[in-house]
Amino acid sequence: MFEARLTQGKVFKQLIEALKDLVQEANIDCSDDEMSIQAMDNSHVALVAVSLRSGGFDHFRCDRPISLGFNATNMGKILKCAGNDDIITLKAEDDGDSLALVFESPGQDRIADFELKLMDIDSEQLGIPDTEYKCTIQMPSGEFQRIIRDMQVLGDTLTISCTKEGVKFHVAGDLGAGNVLIRQNNTAEKDEDKVMIDMQEPVELTFALRYLNFFTKATSLGPTVILSMSPEVPVVVEYPIGETGYIKYYLAPKIDEDED
C-alpha cells in the first residue's frame, strides 16, 4: 500500500507539467523514504530525475517499494482537474494497476477523486556517475527562463561559457547573434535573487536550446536554478523544490566531431 498526501498539491501538478513535454512515459518509484522519477527522453539526449523525500509530505506511507508506470500526458490531463490550492493525495495498492488521485479543496468542501490506469514500463534503472563539476552557477530561475526564451529567437544552439568574468550565454543564427552575460551578485537582498558562481576552471559547452526550453517549464517549482558544468559531460540543471526535493535535468552537450 502506498499513500502520500501533499498539502501543497500544486507542487505535484507543476512537477508533472515540468516533465510531460520531455518524456511520454515514466515510472514513479516509491520507497519508505522517497518518491522518485527518472526517465530519458525518446532520443536519449536528456534525462530527468525527480526526488521528493517523505519529509516533504504531510503523510507518507509506503509498505514496500512500488513502481508506478504512468503516461505523462494522461497524468497531466487528470492533474488539470486539481485546483492550485488543492491538497493532493496519491494512493496505490501493492498489486493494483491504477493510481488513485484525490483532490481536496482547502476548505474540505469539495473532494474529487480520479483513477489513472497504470502501465508496465520497461525502463532500466540508470546511475549517474558522480562528477566533480568545474563550474556551479546558482541564479534566479526566472532569469534563466528569460535568457532561454530570448536566445531561442535567434537560433537553435546555445553556448554557455563560464569564465571569471561571469557566465556568458551565446547564440548565433540566420538573423544574427546574441549574448547575455550574467555576473556574480552576492549583494542582493533576498537569497533567491543572488547569482553565485563557483568556478574552478573555465568551461564552455554547447546545447540544443529546444531541450533547455523544456527544462524551464520547471521554473514555477522554485525561485532558484543551479547549473553544474564540466567539460564534455552533460550539464545538470537543478531546480530545488523546497527543502525536501528537486527536479534535475541532464542534457548531453553537442560535440565537435573531428571527422576522419
Binding site: 536519449h44 553537442k254 560535440i255
Partner: peptide
C-alpha cells in the same frame, strides 16, 4: 539542427 556540433547522447 546540426549547427554547432553533433548532439551527443546521454
Amino acid at each position: 539542427d546540426e549547427s554547432g556540433g553533433k548532439q551527443s547522447s546521454m
